[in-house]
Design a protein around this nucleic acid. Structure first.
Lengths: 185, 185, 185, 185
DNA sequence: GATGAATGAGGATTCATTCAT
DNA sequence: AATGAATGAATCCTCATTCAT
């Protein structure tokens, strides 16, 4: 992963990966079908781990807002603590959609379920609006976080990623408008 | 671009591009320094065009909300009408950051300037909150749109991308919270 | 020639030569059959010139020793004054023997005739030994001069090439032996 | 080497070399950095071998004349027995001076040292003149031999190269002059 | 006669993958 | 199970040469 993350999938040689792993080139093929499979297996494995964490974080919150905050904090923390993975998700995930398609769909669905869970809870509490499209909200959250992580990676990891959590929660909840909530245009 | 968009940069052979363009392989190299330069020149050229359109769209709006709506509609329209470009932006832009770095920065800055312009106007009108970080708002908007376009591309362009405009404007302005506007979190 | 001399035949592009000559690429082919022909025509032309000079130099000498000295001085002068030609002769002549074969044979023969002329004269004068193989002597002279020019070129043209003339004449005439001339081993 | 010798460096394709060697194209690159490295490694390896032989030959002689004769005979024998190497030295050595520079210098120096050794010995014996420039003598010997080998190669290896040894030794020792030895010119 | 854009064959090099050990 | 030498298909790029203008 280190190799893929730093050089990109296509510029990485299998022999580099083998060297980094301390095994012979041929050994790779005892555990992976081919080069692409290395990436796919990683995504399958890592995604599961990460999402368990996301779920735990959400479940650990009592109110919708706290859940959202937990999810976002966890999301940012996870990527901050593993920049190689961050880079892989940003750069390689989209390209290898053909092969990793199933993984992506599953992951996307999991995220959406989490968001739906939060929204539902918030609607029950009365803290979240009724007229929301969970899928759209999910895409807003995930897209925003992705973009923020991307910027952070490009900046060389300068600022504190996790510190943005509260600003983001606030932005998502309140929006940018100064107006009375209610029926919009 | 068609070739790059459908196969990805690394899986595309220069001779494929030449064939698609109806010229000989060598002819490519009369106009492009190397394979990567084809992509870079395209980004340079296309980005300029697209951003002129974005600017016009924003300037055509009278109020901040209308401007935001115009920007988003234009953004979605542009990518819907040129799915090849959309795919390229989604899949290749991030990876070739080294070479296209300047372009990306310039583009990112332009977008941010547009958003800042809208925010400022809205703040003067009293329709946009005062306490906003323009860079964060920009990342939210661009990230959300990117994710939405990504989903749309992956779905095979099924639903109407541009029809999401109003929902997005509403979501950005109002947020997902059901609360009294004002200092939150 | 400048281009060939500095980069070598195979690393020189026809378009470079055209640029240096201030004409279009295609124009080259109005005057030369192909790339190799540029070299061949040059050798044909230049060799003739140079050998006329060699002949003149030899004829201008009255005794055999003076003739030899004149030949060598002229030879070294010619190459010192045109290092590009020198480099071409050293580096490209041997390789293109197939095509330039005729030229090389002619040139070699001319040189041999000059040397034979000198030897004959010296033998008549009694200053040159009788039992000499003119072809061998020619190869000694031309080989030595070539090697000396080669060394000079490699050294960056540091020392004065022509100043070696007298030492060489002396070396050729006297040999390195300290002995009584006559029947050797 | 066979391939390089027969076609020249630039006209030789790596795949030809691989075929001749009975391996796949890629295998070449497990042992050589690139095409040029094939030549350089050969020179490095072969030159060492050959010069060991030269040294042995010189050391095997007791008097200066015998040493000179041994050196020349060995030199001619070596090249006669390996015409491919001979062709390579004649045609490619000079051109690849950039890369093989170090080798050439080292070789040139070794040859010069050998010649200096012979001269010194002869001067002690009284068989070699005192006023000699070893570097010039070296260039005469090596240049003459090169030229003789060149002629031999061009003639298709017709006559017996090694048979020239005695004539050459005699020529070098006595010179072409019919005069009293001593200070000339 | 001169041009130079276009051509496309050719060749060096890389690297994922295999398989005998 | 592990190795790593060998493979050879794949591909970018160069450049001599042509020919319509």
């Amino acid at each position: 992963m280190r190799v893929f993350a730093r050089q990109g999938f296509f510029k990485s040689a299998v022999s580099q990966i083998a060297r980094e792993a301390g095994v012979a080139d041929g050994t790779i093929y005892l555990y992976f079908k081919n080069k692409e499979d290395i990436l796919v297996q990683f995504f399958t494995y890592k995604t599961k781990l990460v999402f368990e964490g996301f779920k735990d974080a959400v479940r650990a919150g009592s109110g919708a807002e706290e859940q959202l905050r937990n999810l976002i904090r966890r999301h940012l923390t996870e990527f901050r603590d593993d920049p190689d993975m961050a880079r892989l998700y940003q750069a390689e995930m989209r390209r290898h959609s053909r092969l990793a398609e199933q993984e992506i769909r599953a992951m996307s669905q999991m995220y959406q379920d989490l968001v739906a869970e939060i929204i539902e809870k918030g609607q029950q509490e009365g803290t979240i609006r009724q007229d929301l499209n969970p899928s759209l909200v999910k895409r807003m959250i995930i897209g925003t976080l992705d973009e923020i992580i991307s910027t952070w990676l490009h900046s060389g990891g300068g600022h504190d990623l996790v510190a943005l959590t509260d600003h983001l929660v606030e932005l998502f909840l309140q929006g940018i408008g100064q107006g009375q909530p209610g029926p919009a245009a």
